[in-house]
């Protein structure tokens, strides 16, 4: 009855030392990312199960996401079109797109904080690459985004908006979002494992950012203040995906800004992650 299974041979040499040099830390962090990437099927399953679990037992399942986003877009759309005296035909497609995209950004940021602590059981039971949890979080949020895209599609169809060929330029923007999301998890996940009071701080920062960034208001409404907008990282990041999907090109310098912010984020995330990776298991 010997049906037991032997696992696939991976890189099975584990070599760890106290107070490692920078090169060693860097190598171990790279290995973490490499092994996490190889466990992509697991990250996919975990991300998918996260969504399934959230909506298990509900009648519509993940379509609740679509429905609640749709209702919010509809309600806010008519309300703010009235307040801002804007034409609903151009405002509602803008709002639907902005809210869905912002929803993705905001939930990646806030979920990053608990990315490692929520997997405490696994981290303390088996050596797992931390990058796995970053990939899981990204996949989970991409799945949510995919459900919300339906809202955008419906609004576009109703208002007969079509981004045209410019829409394809959103693809590199989305890829950059993916990379930055992974960096965010490595950074905030590590930081929040050590300092537990970061989570509420991040929450309030994101709330301020929501009102300060052109999500429910349009950049043009700002008048002369528009020149200052690129200094808000959320604006640059939002524009590289939103502008193409609205059928326009991001203004000059927006892509440059987005790249600079992304590089800064990665440098920060990587230096924190390489320094602290070996300590995370002790913190959570």
């Amino acid at each position: 009855m010997d049906t037991a299974v032997t696992p696939e041979v991976r890189n099975t040499l584990l070599e760890l030392e106290g107070d490692p040099s920078f090169a060693t830390r860097n190598r171990l962090a790279m290995r973490d990312v490499g092994e996490g990437t190889r466990l992509l099927p697991l990250a996919w399953t975990l991300g998918w199960l996260d969504i399934r679990l959230r909506y298990r037992g509900s009648m519509l399942g993940p379509l609740w996401l679509t429905l609640s986003t749709g209702i919010m877009v509809g309600a806010l759309g008519y309300l703010y079109a009235g307040i801002f005296h804007t034409d609903i035909n151009s405002y509602l497609p803008f709002l639907a797109l902005s809210l869905v995209l912002w929803g993705f950004l905001a939930s990646v940021v806030s979920e990053s904080c608990s990315a490692f602590t929520e997997s405490e059981g696994i981290v303390r039971a088996v050596r797992m690459p931390f990058f796995l949890f970053a990939a899981r979080l990204l996949i989970r949020n991409v799945l949510v985004l995919a459900h919300n895209v339906l809202v955008i599609a419906v609004v576009y169809a109703v208002f007969r908006v079509w981004p045209g060929r410019h829409g394809l330029l959103a693809v590199p923007g989305l890829l950059l979002w993916g990379l930055d999301s992974l960096a965010l998890v490595l950074m905030l996940g590590t930081f929040c494992a050590r300092f537990r009071d970061i989570l509420p701080i991040v929450g309030s920062v994101m709330q301020i950012a929501f009102f300060m960034s052109p999500v429910i208001w349009m950049p043009e409404q700002l008048g002369r203040g528009q020149a200052l907008l690129p200094f808000n990282p959320f604006f640059d990041m939002l524009e590289i995906v939103r502008a193409p999907l609205l059928g326009t090109l991001p203004a000059e310098g927006i892509w440059l800004g987005a790249m600079l912010y992304s590089i800064a984020l990665w440098v920060l995330a990587w230096s924190l992650f390489t320094r602290a990776r070996g300590r995370i298991a002790f913190w959570i």
Binding site: T6, P7, V9, R10, T12, L13, L14, E15, L16, E17, G18, D19, V123, R124, A125, V126, R127, G278, R279, A281, F282
Partner: peptide, 21 residues
């Protein structure tokens, strides 16, 4: 199992390990 990394000293483990904790 490589879950905790040493603060001082060296750990070398060669082979597929499984920790039943």
């Amino acid at each position: 199992a490589g879950i905790y990394e040493p603060v001082i000293g060296r750990v070398v483990v060669q082979g597929r390990s499984n920790a039943l904790l």
